[in-house]
Simulated scan of single mutants.
Amino acid sequence: MHVRNRESQADRSARTRSALLESAARGLSRYGYSHLKLEQVARDAGYTRGALYHQFEGKQELTLAVLDWIGETWTRQVGPLVERETEPVAALLALARGHAVYCRRTGARVATALRIEFSGQDHPVGHEIERRYEQLVERCRRLIVAGRADGTIAPGPPDRTLALAFVGALDGTVTALADLAPLDELLTARAVAGVLGLDPMAVTESPSP
């Protein structure tokens, strides 16, 4: 009986945490870090401010937890789409499509918004955003290197420069086409195809993951 009670309490705590993270992600997307109100985050999640402070010490810890949550959910949803592709170009296009679909989630664009807000600032949230951004750029760079090695991506700008352009096209198109599903997926794939020197019109519609 005591074990079941402890498990039940753990489950309730996990549900509270998840609801608060989703609410915070929505708030960060709409208002940014500076204007995020923790009381509003708690209220929108259906909890009191005390419940929020039971889970998180403050805005910084909450925001870092949101970034972890986004990273984990992105990896679970988009990662397998990329990994199942055996060819580098197909993997890059799968990443673009998967990212566009993932970004339909409420608050999924928070990382891009925070990167702009914290640009040039010495702040833990800004540092974490940049770390995660560099991980994505490096992942794309490795696929670009592999694509050039097998001849499917033509020689041209340095690998990292092309990876930066790829991620820029990815984020920019997804942001511009917010709430325009299903065209967001197709046009994001075409945008990154163009960056890679491929024929964008050769990218056709496919079922969303």
Rank of each mutant, 00 (worst) to 15 (best):
A65V: 04
T152E: 01
A96Q: 03
G107P: 05
R142K: 09
R142D: 08
V110A: 15
L81C: 08
L92M: 15
E128M: 06
C103D: 09
L136Y: 03
I70M: 15
I144V: 13
R132C: 02
T175I: 07
V145C: 07
P155K: 12
C140Y: 03
E134A: 04
I116D: 06
A178R: 14
P88A: 00
P124V: 06
D150N: 09
I70K: 14
L92R: 13
E117M: 02
T106F: 02
V78F: 14
E87K: 06
R141W: 08
G151V: 07
R97Q: 01
L81N: 01
H127Q: 14
Y133D: 15
T152P: 00
L186F: 11
R131D: 03
W69N: 07
V125I: 15
Q77G: 01
V89A: 07
D171V: 00
G168P: 06
A146C: 10
L64S: 01
R160N: 09
V66P: 04
I144P: 06
G168M: 11
G107V: 04
I116W: 05
L164W: 00
E134T: 07
R160C: 05
G98A: 06
L64H: 04
L136T: 09
I153E: 11
L64W: 13
Y133E: 11
C103S: 15
Q121L: 08
P182I: 03
G172D: 10
D179H: 09
W69V: 00
T63G: 05
A108Q: 15
C140D: 00
P80R: 07
G151M: 06
V145E: 15
E138Q: 02
G151C: 03
A113Y: 11
D184Q: 12
D122S: 09
A108C: 08
D171P: 01
Q135C: 05
R131M: 03
P155E: 15
D68I: 06
P155C: 09
R148I: 00
G98Y: 04
E85K: 06
A96K: 01
L164V: 05
R132F: 04
Q77K: 12
A100E: 04
A176M: 09
R84M: 14
A100W: 02
